[in-house]
């Protein structure tokens, strides 16, 4: 197992109290596995992605552990966490378009970044990797503003994976792009894994149909908790959790692919995570809800590698 997350709880501090954005999640990702992480905004998927590399100032680790390749990842310790960042765990952020310092030429920025991590820049290797994503070495002599959005995205992909991390988090990498570029980015992600440049990958997205094309497994989150995790085909063809079913059936065969909008078929909205009700978080909107749902269902393995948190699926 490359990544093992156990009962991870991360809260957001706000003036009205702590928002339980991540309320006890337990899962693992195998070596070389590409896991799609799907859910509506506010489901906790982005918080989970960020928690694995850098907690921002408003996030508070409440409990749980993260293990990578058998070592405990010190998510709460800013200083010790630095040893893992970039080397072991890396991220392609949601904001790739603005992730590069606008006043430095790209080559120089990469050199300075590596130097600050105590790594020497191997120009030949950097150029080879740029070529891999279809960029010429010339971009190193340019400022970010001279590149198109898609080019910047690819530069960031190369930079983030330069030290061959064993875990790469791709956070909503396709949301700012047009459809054809999205496909290219998805293929590139696949290429990074197949080329052995990264170990496993978590692809955070609200776009289940896109992630389905590259992911080995898909994990669905709802209201700060896990709803379902299974091989991609199983999620697509035989989802067990009523929320996953609603999510899948709301996707037309082709065309609109955004699950981020309120689910049309299900009335109501996701629970407020400031003070969530006990029991299953999906209860209020669930067509199958019954008395037992007042009790939190376990995230149980109902078939090989197929985990679901629903009483009705057991």
């Amino acid at each position: 197992m490359a990544l093992r997350v156990t009962d991870l709880k991360v809260h957001y501090r706000t003036r009205r109290g702590e928002v339980k954005a991540l309320d006890g999640v337990t899962f693992s990702v195998a070596d070389g596995e590409i896991m799609g992480l799907a859910g509506e905004s506010g489901s906790g998927k982005s918080t989970l992605g960020k928690s694995l590399i850098r907690l921002d100032s408003r996030m508070r680790h409440v409990g749980g552990t993260v293990e990578l390749d058998g070592t405990v990842v010190p998510v709460t310790d800013k200083r010790r966490m630095n040893a893992f960042r970039f080397h072991k765990i890396s991220i392609i952020p949601q904001y790739s378009m603005s992730a590069l310092n606008p006043t430095r030429k790209i080559g120089r920025m990469v050199g300075e970044l590596l130097a600050s991590r105590g790594v020497r820049l191997e120009t030949a290797e950097l150029e080879r990797r740029l070529e891999l994503v279809g960029l010429s070495a010339e971009v190193l002599g340019r400022y970010p503003i001279e590149l198109s959005g898609g080019m910047k995205q690819r530069v960031v992909m190369v930079v983030s994976t330069l030290l061959n991390p064993s875990l790469l988090i791709a956070d909503e990498v396709t949301s700012a792009l047009d459809v054809s570029t999205q496909k290219a980015v998805a293929r590139t992600l696949l290429g990074l894994r197949d080329g052995g440049l990264v170990g496993s990958m978590i692809v955070v997205t609200h776009d289940i149909s896109l992630v389905y094309q590259i992911a080995d497994t898909i994990m669905v989150m709802y209201g700060g908790r896990l709803a379902e995790k299974a091989p991609a085909d199983a999620v697509a063809t035989s989802p067990r959790h009523p929320y996953t079913r609603a999510l899948i059936s709301s996707l037309p065969e082709a065309g609109v692919r955004h699950a981020d909008k309120r689910l049309q078929g299900i009335p109501g909205s996701p629970p407020a995570l400031l003070d969530p009700p006990p029991g299953c978080r999906f209860r209020d909107r669930c067509p199958l809800a019954f008395e037992r749902c007042a009790e939190q269902p376990p995230f149980a393995e109902v078939a090989p590698d197929h985990f679901v948190a629903c009483w009705k699926a057991m």
Binding site: I53, R85, P93, Y95, L100, N101, P102, T103, R104, S116
Partner: peptide, 28 residues
């Protein structure tokens, strides 16, 4: 609070480098 700073921090860049870049951009 800029995106490029968050990215550098996520990749574990040194505080010195982050501040130098911030200064270079803030001087404009």
């Amino acid at each position: 609070e800029a995106d490029y700073v968050h990215y550098l921090e996520a990749l574990g860049a040194s505080r010195r480098l982050v501040r130098r870049y911030a200064f270079r951009n803030a001087i404009l």
